[in-house]
C-alpha cells in the first residue's frame, strides 16, 4: 500500500502496480474495442471474398510484396525502442535515453506510413472500382488511423518525458502509449497477412 499522485514528487512505484493501474485497464479495454472492430473488418473481408472465384478480381493485380515487406520491417523494428522506454518506465527509471528512443520510434512509424502509401499507388488500389479496393481501404485505413493516433500519443509522451522526466504520471502515460503502439504493430501483421498474403492462398 502506498500513495501517489498530486504533488508530483517522484515516488518510486513498484512495478506490478504501475503495470496495472487504471490507465492500463482503460487501455486494455480500448484495445478490446479495437480488436472487436478489427474482427468485424476481417469477417467482412473474408465474407465478401467468398463471393468471388478469383481474388483479387480483375483488373487488380495480385498484391506485390516488396514495399510492404520493408514497411512491415520498419514497423516491427519500431517496437524495440518503445519497449525499452516501457520497461524503463515500469521500473521507475528515467534514464536520459528515453526521449531519443521515443524519437526513433516516431521516425520508424512515420517511415512505415510513407512506404505503405507508396505501395498503394504502386499496387493500383482503387476503393471505388470494386469491393476488393473498398476492403483494402477499410482494413488499411483502420490500421493507419490507429497508427497516426498512437504516433501522436508517443509524441506527447516524448515531449512530457523531455520536459519533466519520469514522474508517476509520465510513467503511466508511457505504459499506456506503449501498449497502444504494440497493438498497432501486431494488428498490422494481421492486416498485412490478410491483404497481401491471403490472396496468394485463397
Amino acid at each position: 500500500m502506498r500513495t501517489s499522485g498530486h504533488t508530483g514528487e517522484a515516488a518510486p512505484r513498484p512495478a506490478p502496480h504501475i503495470a496495472r493501474g487504471t490507465g492500463w485497464w482503460g487501455m486494455l479495454l480500448l484495445q478490446l474495442v479495437l480488436v472487436s472492430m478489427l474482427a468485424a473488418l476481417l469477417f467482412s473481408y473474408f465474407y465478401l471474398r467468398d463471393g468471388f472465384d478469383t481474388w483479387p478480381p480483375a483488373p487488380a493485380p495480385a498484391p506485390a510484396l516488396g514495399l510492404t515487406a520493408v514497411a512491415t520491417g520498419l514497423l516491427v523494428l519500431s517496437a524495440v525502442p518503445v519497449a525499452a522506454v516501457h520497461l524503463a518506465a515500469r521500473a521507475g527509471r528515467s534514464d536520459g535515453r528515453g526521449p531519443a528512443a521515443l524519437a526513433a520510434a516516431l521516425a520508424l512509424g512515420a517511415a512505415f506510413l510513407a512506404v505503405q502509401f507508396a505501395d498503394y499507388s504502386a499496387n493500383d488500389i482503387d476503393p471505388q472500382r470494386d469491393v476488393y479496393g473498398s476492403l483494402f481501404l477499410a482494413l488499411a485505413g483502420f490500421h493507419h488511423v490507429n497508427a497516426v493516433l498512437a504516433l501522436l500519443g508517443l509524441g506527447v509522451v516524448l515531449l512530457r518525458v523531455r520536459s519533466g522526466g519520469m514522474r508517476p504520471r509520465e510513467q503511466e502515460m508511457v505504459v499506456t502509449a506503449a501498449h497502444y503502439w504494440y497493438f498497432v504493430v501486431w494488428s498490422w501483421i494481421v492486416v498485412a497477412a490478410t491483404l497481401y498474403l491471403a490472396p496468394r492462398f485463397w
Binding site: S44, Y47, L48, G51, Q128, R129, V131, L137, A138
Partner: peptide, 16 residues
C-alpha cells in the same frame, strides 16, 4: 465515398 461494401452490383453483399 462510393465504395461497394453492400452493393451487389460490384461484388458487395447486402447480407453482410
Amino acid at each position: 465515398v462510393g465504395t461497394h461494401f453492400y452493393d451487389p452490383a460490384a461484388g458487395g453483399e447486402s447480407l453482410l
